[in-house]
Amino acid sequence: MKRVDAAGPAPGGLLGGPLSSYDDLSRASDLYHRVFRYGVDGPALNTNLLGALRRNGGSTVGVKTPEGRLVGFAYGFPGTDGSARYHYSQAAVVDPEFQGRHVGRLLKLHQREIALDWGEHRMRWSFDPLLARNAHFNFDSLGAVGIALQEDYYGQADTDRVIVEWDLDRDPRTLWHRPTAPPPGRLGPADWGRPIPGAAGVWLPIAGTLLAGDPESAEIHAQRPRVRAALGELFAAGYVATSCVRLDALTAAYLFRRGRTTDG
């Protein structure tokens, strides 16, 4: 395992890189199930499949402590939508104890290296559009953009996903922490799911958190149809999502701009 130069010094001496041994892939599978809290009947992650992916255009990467404890894992595979080729990152998981310590960024940087080695020039993945924290990481931390909405992505209700695209040929350091102009006026729960034009682009406010057991979760989930409709209209009109910022304890907001670009 190694540190990625573009990431700067790895916090806490964390080391990242490809996972190749059966033991490492087994530990990755265990971490995946523990973090996502999948039960016996939940989605399985086959260790042999991960080994096959690694040898055939895919990625299996991890982040470890100096003592060798696996605290982050991501995997992906070659993908196409019929017109474009890309490396598709299916999942990235971080041990809850190490969240907020740049493990997710290290995972994505190592996936980027592997995808470039396989000859790919872009990476895609998906996320729930109501997860503002994930959106902020994807757009504001990595510099990727949201290019489309796929309704009921996994064939089940409430599995809408925003498709993210990341330009692998650009130095990630040029895309991190891009400044974003503030949205117009004060936005709150009454604005959730309502596109609001501003000087920087079109803002789409959403609930700032979506947590299991949150007493507001029913209200938060109620915004899903409005957010789905707004996202569909914005993407159909040629906009891409370039940022998602927290406005206060209750509300976050996407920023949409015209054209598929990662420029700030």
Rank of each mutant, 00 (worst) to 15 (best):
G213W: 09
N134P: 07
G100C: 07
R105A: 14
D263Q: 12
F137R: 14
R228H: 09
L53Y: 13
E219G: 15
P18V: 10
P129Q: 04
A200Q: 00
K108M: 10
D169H: 04
P189W: 05
L210I: 13
Y75M: 10
T159Y: 06
P183A: 09
D24H: 13
N46T: 07
G119I: 01
H177A: 15
I147N: 12
G42H: 08
S20P: 01
K108F: 08
R161Q: 11
L187C: 00
A241T: 07
T47P: 05
S21P: 10
D160M: 03
Y38K: 12
D24F: 04
L106C: 09
D214M: 01
D95L: 09
R133W: 02
E151Q: 12
V63P: 09
M123Y: 06
H177D: 15
M1Q: 01
R112V: 00
D214A: 10
L109K: 11
A241S: 14
P195C: 07
R85M: 14
E97Y: 10
N134D: 10
A241L: 13
L45K: 06
E219F: 01
G264A: 15
R34A: 15
R27L: 07
V61S: 03
L142R: 12
F77G: 02
G58C: 12
R161E: 11
R34G: 00
G238Y: 08
G198S: 05
G100S: 08
G143H: 11
A74W: 02
A212H: 14
A92R: 04
R69I: 10
E216M: 11
H33G: 09
A200H: 02
A157Y: 02
I196W: 00
G13K: 10
H136R: 15
F98S: 02
A135D: 08
G58L: 11
V227W: 03
Y154S: 02
E113I: 02
R34Q: 15
T65R: 05
A241M: 13
R194Q: 14
I147M: 05
R34M: 09
Y254H: 12
A200D: 08
T242L: 13
V227D: 03
H177I: 04
Q223G: 06
R178Y: 01
S141M: 11
E216H: 14
H221V: 05
R226V: 00
P9L: 13
S217E: 15
G208Q: 03
A253R: 05
P183G: 08
A207P: 13
T251C: 09
G68N: 10
G12A: 11
Y22D: 12
L25P: 04
F137N: 14
R105H: 13
R69T: 14
I206V: 15
Q90P: 00
Y154M: 06
Q150F: 05
L149N: 01
R161C: 06
L116I: 08
Y154T: 02
P205E: 12
P129K: 04
L15C: 04
Q150A: 10
A52E: 12
Y75T: 06
D263M: 03
I163R: 11
H33I: 11
K108T: 07
V202S: 01
L204P: 04
G82R: 13
P43V: 02
E120A: 08
A157F: 01
D95P: 07
A7V: 00
